[in-house]
Write a protein that binds this DNA or RNA. Sequence first.
DNA 1: TGTAAAAGTGATAATGGATATCAGTTTATA
DNA 2: TATAAACTGATATCCATTATCACTTTTACA
Lengths: 129, 129
Amino acid sequence: MNYSRQREIIFDTLRRHAVHPTAERLYNIIKGEQPDSNIGIATVYRNLRRMANSGSIKKISGLEEAEHFDHNTHTHYHFLCKKCNKVFDIDAKVAPEIIENTQKETGFIIDSYDVVFHGICKDCQTEEN
Amino acid sequence: MNYSRQREIIFDTLRRHAVHPTAERLYNIIKGEQPDSNIGIATVYRNLRRMANSGSIKKISGLEEAEHFDHNTHTHYHFLCKKCNKVFDIDAKVAPEIIENTQKETGFIIDSYDVVFHGICKDCQTEEN
DNA sequence: TGTAAAAGTGATAATGGATATCAGTTTATA
DNA sequence: TATAAACTGATATCCATTATCACTTTTACA
């Protein structure tokens, strides 16, 4: 994979924004932060897909409509608050033996897995409504 | 929710097919099995969405492109084989304390969660290639 | 360095899953 | 059994994502 200025900007912007953005959201962040960089939306999609395939970032499945992306590639889970729609990281230690147990139980080879929780985050519980 | 002949057919067909079909696939199964029922694709989408919302079936997120649906609503996980593309059920006991641990750890209220494993199933491991 | 092949880009058309619309039909109730 | 509410099928539309393609940038190596 050759170097590209655009990919560097995309990766760097994803790293600096912990919001687990979609491709579209990241595109708009970049346009806001660096209007002169002139990166096309297809380039954002293209590079997010490639970085996710190569493992340098992670694609989060199962949230809502669109895919979200995460700079943090170490094993962890996600929580989607149905009130504020924010995505939170959940430590993987909540299910310490899930991989070993599943491989033992099924005999399947597991490359990766996603855990997504849906519910109401702490902040949204304390607000009225 | 009023009774409808179409919803009954959709639910029944989903129950009789353990393949975790997408809306489109289910639509085609129904057309094949009951060509005279004349159910529209929008009706299939509409009723799957509504039954998933009401809890009588489950929507499986995080597989590939399209959403898949499952008649089995008791807690269990899914495994997607990247060779044969089949979806397998995984018993929830592989992560027995995931909900309690996560609520304790975060203080979040968890309504539901999805676990999707990706890898290679047993059959595809034994075949050459 | 100079240059050609390979890789990447931006604009935009195309794709495909899902939803909205709407006139007509079916179901529930009183 | 009449009326409102719910539902349907056909299809237009939406929207996230991918494909296409002419052009630009990067890399390898002479």
